[in-house]
Design a binder for these strands. Structure first.
Lengths: 384, 384
DNA sequence: ATTATTTGTCATGTTGCATTACAAATAATC
DNA sequence: GATTATTTGTAATGCAACATGACAAATAAT
């Protein structure tokens, strides 16, 4: 019971930021004296500090503000095809350190990746304030991560298969902290729902467009992960039975219609230009290039076609667009909304707002930190 | 804390059936003495009975079996276009009484429906054992039910719009019990996941084929309901951009490809034959009619096309087919699985099993009882 | 018949929050 | 500037509920 209450308080401070003690009383339903004891315990353990705050014009004895101490830290790791990033995130969400190392696309081999991560981690850890306590680590991976054992079953772009990333990282690092692994898009969805474009919204669909198309769903503030943790793989949602062959073997998958290559194809460009070519299209669109705008418009139509299904199925409150779809949102919006209006029941459509990602490329990284915090908060409560 | 523990025990008895006291100790992690006190309280309140059971060959003092008492009852109501059903369901899930009143399809007017329900409820209640206690009522409706206020926003087949069913029922009935309303397919999914074809499975996709196509998702044993409770509306999942116009205004919706009319159309029959015509097709298929089997096969292809998306998105452990799709499953299975094999990542596909509904037309009714039980269990714990 | 094992029961201990009264700190009032 | 109303922290005491540990009861194995 003590633990449950400590957890409630810590979690609300982590997600909602500093709060006055009187507010904690109101939020938790506990009595002043109970909250007094509990907060004293949190102060004692070094998790929070109490600072006197001004009365804010209200009369009565001012209630001190309880603030999360960011010397409590988790590490977050993001593995991409062409870069690896590591960050240290404090209790309450502040990004204390963040480093990213670019690499060429053919250096995704697992051994090298693990060594890269370990060296970035070492440098981040060395730069932390002394006295910092690192509680756990979260890793975002662009692939299928099995929930039961955190194995990376398949990460096509990295050419990984059945990788026990947790064990490899623990062997390579000198840190003795628990490591958790999640799917990139699921974690990005979590980050956007907690701290990003959909902050505070509990039912979110996140879409990220890169070479492939990834997705993550948040329902009632929880990641929808399915039996094994593979939910959200919307890249191969069938949308066009007459479509282009996908390298998954099927035809007309969502990602062959709304991925990078589809956009380049529609604009009449070479489809192997990657991120750079897409960036060119975005600036062409921004400067009003008619034919490029038309390509985006057609892109929006297919995007809306697929998203309409997700909205019908999940009745989300927000859809967040990551990857190149974030910056592309203004150019696809009109047709996208036209499709939604046509295919989604109006009451369901009224619920949903569309946002470009707020966190950009760091969304999965921040999501990994939130994954780590989920477990760190429990560990903090259980300690001593 | 007491309440939480009582709730845990009651809930596990309701869902898992009778359990020995020693088993409750193991399941809950509480001590023998604590469980002793808690079970005594439940006995005292009349919720359970303890009966001595034989040792089962194991040595040691035999542990008495704790059994839910089915004089604790909830009422379940199912509103369909052509019938209304009411059941009384005891703690632990037994269906104590069940009545269904058929009506013609043009008698769905709300006032008449409410009177029909009230009269069926009265007869069911009158037939219950004296001393029974009715805790709550659940209603399954084929339409959009807003979670926040239980309003039926839209039920096209009933021609209902913005109906406050809870208030109307309370006014018409002489019972003073809380009433809860849910979407038919969501509740059917819940029932199948708790007591039906997918009993004990926590990640379920349920599909019901009638005139329209409804769906319900269970994720981590919880109904996925979205912000407003409208999730699961897969009838208008876009699947065929070149398809048939749907009466929702769009083209190529899932239900225009896999609903009753689509099947009849494929078999070259009149599309207004309804349930009877579909039953004829099913028996024709069972007796090997080639052209009908071909229609089912084509049906299976589109079914698989849509389901592939759901499987990719939700990584379920089971898919349950209700309505006419249950009996039709054997005839569509081959092509359905072909589509899944083609469009779903193999690891995700390995997780999923396909089942015909176990509960048949009663699935929504039983789901409504489970909805009622969700709240009844809480009320029972809070009492006194 | 005896022993080992499992489990229920009861007396006592401990944990943790609620209750209550009071003190402290602020704004409003005069 | 003193007084009052209001809000909140603090500390002593009480209570609810589960844990602990010793013992008795009921069964199978020896």
């Amino acid at each position: 019971m003590r633990q449950a209450n400590l957890h409630t308080i810590l979690r609300s401070l982590h997600l909602g930021g500093a709060a006055s003690r009187s507010r904690i009383v109101a939020d938790t339903g506990l009595t002043r004296s109970a909250v007094g004891v509990l907060v004293a315990e949190l102060v004692d353990r070094g998790y929070v500090t109490e600072v006197r705050s001004d009365s804010g014009g209200k009369r009565g004895r001012p209630s001190p503000s309880v603030e999360p101490r960011s010397k409590n830290v988790v590490l977050a790791v993001e593995v991409l095809v062409d870069s690896v990033a590591v960050a240290a995130v404090g209790l309450g969400g502040p990004v204390l350190r963040s480093v990213r190392r670019d690499r060429s696309r053919d250096q995704t081999e697992i051994g090298q990746t693990v060594r890269d991560i370990a060296s970035l981690v070492a440098s981040v850890v060395a730069s932390l304030d002394s006295g910092s306590k690192i509680w756990s680590m979260g890793v975002a991976v662009p692939g299928l991560v099995r929930r039961s054992d955190a194995m990376v079953i398949l990460a096509p772009n990295l050419r990984w298969e059945n990788i026990d990333l947790v064990e490899l990282l623990r062997d390579e690092m000198s840190l003795e902290i628990p490591v958790f692994v999640g799917n990139e898009a699921d974690l990005a969805a979590l980050a956007e729902s907690r701290r990003g474009a959909a902050a505070g919204i509990d039912d979110v669909v996140y879409l990220s467009g890169e070479v492939g198309v990834g997705g993550g769903f948040i329902s009632s503030a929880q990641i929808v992960d399915g039996v094994s943790g593979f939910a959200g793989e919307i890249g191969h949602l069938p949308v066009n039975i007459e479509g282009v062959p996908c390298n998954c073997g099927a035809v007309g998958c969502f990602e062959t219609e709304v991925g990078e290559e589809a956009l380049l194809r529609r604009a009449g460009r070479a489809t192997d230009g990657g991120r750079v070519a897409v960036a060119e299209l975005l600036s062409a669109a921004a400067s009003g290039d008619e034919s490029v705008l038309e390509a985006f418009a057609e892109h929006g139509r297919w995007l809306g076609f697929g998203i309409a299904g997700l909205v019908n199925a999940l009745n989300p409150s927000a859809i967040v667009f990551g990857g190149f779809l974030g910056p592309a949102l203004p150019f696809v919006l009109e047709n996208l909304q036209k499709q939604l209006a046509m295919r989604v029941l109006s009451v369901v459509q009224d619920d949903v707002s569309l946002f470009a990602s707020n966190l950009g490329p760091d969304a999965p990284l921040l999501g990994a930190s939130e994954l780590a915090w989920n477990h760190a908060l429990e560990a903090m409560v259980l300690e001593s």
